[in-house]
Design a binder for these strands. Structure first.
Lengths: 340, 340
DNA sequence: TCCTATTTGAGGCACGTGCATCAAATCAAG
DNA sequence: CTTGATTTGATGCACGTGCCTCAAATAGGA
């Protein structure tokens, strides 16, 4: 009933605890034959190292860094909040989390920052930054140096590492499905608003959106993406333009993670009847907008879950153990004013 | 930087480690004045007991029991599967989980089963059983005896204990919102199918459903709940009856956690155009039904999350520590064929 | 065969806490 | 002040693992 210990392992393998230790911690100077014996015993007994005891012995403490864009977006603030929560939740596991801000548009400085992290003080990093060769390289280099590193929310596509985030193509498709199903009109056009179409995330959402719309709602037409660049005046101008000129408008898809500006602009315009509005990410603002009907639906990734998942993954890499994929899958959440 | 230990505490409080130990573990024979001194030091240093070390010292192992109804429902099977997963996920924390089957309709036997659990072998129980005074009593008795106990999925309303599950009223409201918004007709009737309306869960879902429908979609009428009692023939009869007689049918709400029978029956009937179908719980069956359009939407509670949440809560009670509410809130998930 | 390099074993301390024992100090009451 | 009870301190082992040192055993090469 009791889990086997290194002592049991030693006995079963017919070696000393010192040798078991050498094998378990990959130290030099053990004959292959002995290594095999120990591994066989591990398998036979189903031995798993008691990480708690190990960490105790090593007085190990984890320090994870979340490298996030510098920005005033509510969504990012939510994430920071959740990082604080996670720190509490994982306090028992001796986990500390720090937030560091990076300049998302300067891959070079991001890479430099990552390069500055040493395995002595930093057990792992979760990086939220647009895809770029420099960053990808820096991540590889980190991993080599023994610092766990995973892309966070923004993916570095071609990497086969673990990553934490949602399938943005599916998220876009979900937005399309909801707009199509919510709309009472048979046909019409849909306005798509993004902050910028530079990022992979936006592109993928748009791809998924168009695919689903074409497949399931061929009578609805998505207009070209409008880019606000986070500028309120510009947003007002381009949105007003579409709203007043397009008589067929039946839906609005706000693709960026910050729905505030577009929604605010829209609410100043004469309310167009029966136009369905879909946005992204749960924030105090989008919750309020759902409540009073400025948004009909919000598609969200569970920020708290993502943060915890990142911590678990970094911890697992750090421990050289494995995570449990089931738990780590980030779902695409659909929020209405009934299920907040 | 290092977290303070009991040694530091002792020094700060000006007492010995033995006394600190007496206070921390609530042993007898310590003067109130000394207790206060130690508590003051705890607060001052921000001491938190290192549970890992404590568990190591005690060779503590957790054994949690999930008391689930005996049944062939897919949803329950999913839960069992997730319990197995959770066991792996928490293996590092020395957690073991067992599933015990209870007769959900016999509160007396459930109470007897709960009474048979001893704190020696069982650290905690998660109980999925309909509300009843006997069960509620048994839970109280368990807690007194030092066995953590929480209602699981089915709630024991009036208890102010922790519990794990969703707000069924909100779930029903969400179903209504989706049916209303998905439907292309201005008015019509909605069929509501349940396995039985005996349980609180069903009642609450119905309440929430009716409230939201009345509020947001006054032109849609919900028909009286049809009860299948899990009997396929009966289901076929009553469903066929409504479908063939009600020309206004625009939606179907399958309220029970087992959507299989109603959906299967419905798919044998001549497909009624534009009828929106909403079911509950994610299972292999409902996933397939979403894919091929037999269901338009599924409202689910994240089974894996619930199981893990239950484990964390039981563990926290067992450790006399606190959980982090944020993480434990079980969301009402909306599943379409785009976000599976 | 002997010598040396490699591989293994034995043992011990550390991590932070729980728990037990026994002695020492302090207290309250007579 | 004495007596006995209550409260505190000192000390040591245990939990499972990491890590260190030193000695012993074994291997391979000449």
């Amino acid at each position: 009933m009791m889990r086997p210990t290194t002592k049991d392992l030693a006995k079963a393998a017919g070696v000393s605890r010192a040798t078991v230790d050498r094998v378990l911690n990959g130290r030099e100077g053990v004959k292959q034959k002995t290594v095999d014996k120990v591994n066989a015993a591990i398998k036979e007994l189903g031995f798993v190292r008691n990480i708690q005891a190990a960490n105790l012995a090593k007085s190990k403490r984890y320090r994870f860094v979340f490298a996030l864009p510098r920005s005033g977006e509510e969504f990012l603030e939510e994430i920071v909040r959740h990082i604080r929560d996670a720190e509490e939740a994982f306090a028992l596991d001796q986990v500390r989390c720090d937030v560091e801000h990076i300049d998302e548009n300067d891959p070079h400085s991001i890479a430099a920052f990552l390069a500055s992290l040493s395995p002595d003080e930093t057990s792992g990093v979760a990086i939220m930054a647009p895809e770029s060769p420099q960053v990808r390289d820096a991540i590889f280099r980190l991993q080599e140096r023994g610092v766990a590193a995973i892309p966070f929310i923004s993916d570095q596509t071609t990497m086969d590492t673990d990553w934490v985030g949602i399938d943005n193509r599916a998220a876009g498709a979900t937005a399309a499905a909801l707009l199509g199903r919510f709309s009472k009109s048979d046909s019409g056009s849909i306005m798509v608003i993004a902050e910028s179409m530079q990022s992979r995330d936006s592109l993928e959402r748009r791809l998924g959106f168009d695919a689903e719309l074409g497949k399931s709602f061929p009578n609805l037409t998505a207009l070209p993406s409008l880019e606000t660049y986070g500028d309120e005046e510009r947003a007002e101008e381009i949105i007003t333009n579409v709203v007043s000129n397009d008589q067929d408008l039946v839906g609005i898809y706000i693709m960026s993670s910050e729905a505030k500006i577009p929604v605010t602009v829209l609410s100043t315009l004469p309310r167009i009847k029966d136009v369905v509005t879909v946005g992204h990410e749960r924030t105090p603002f989008t919750e309020a907008a759902l409540h009073d009907g400025r948004l009909d639906c919000v598609i969200a990734q569970n920020a708290g879950h993502m943060v915890r998942s990142a911590v678990r993954k970094l911890k697992a890499i750090s421990d050289k153990s494995t995570t449990h994929s089931q738990q780590e899958h980030i779902r695409i959440e659909i929020l209405l004013n009934t299920n907040l």
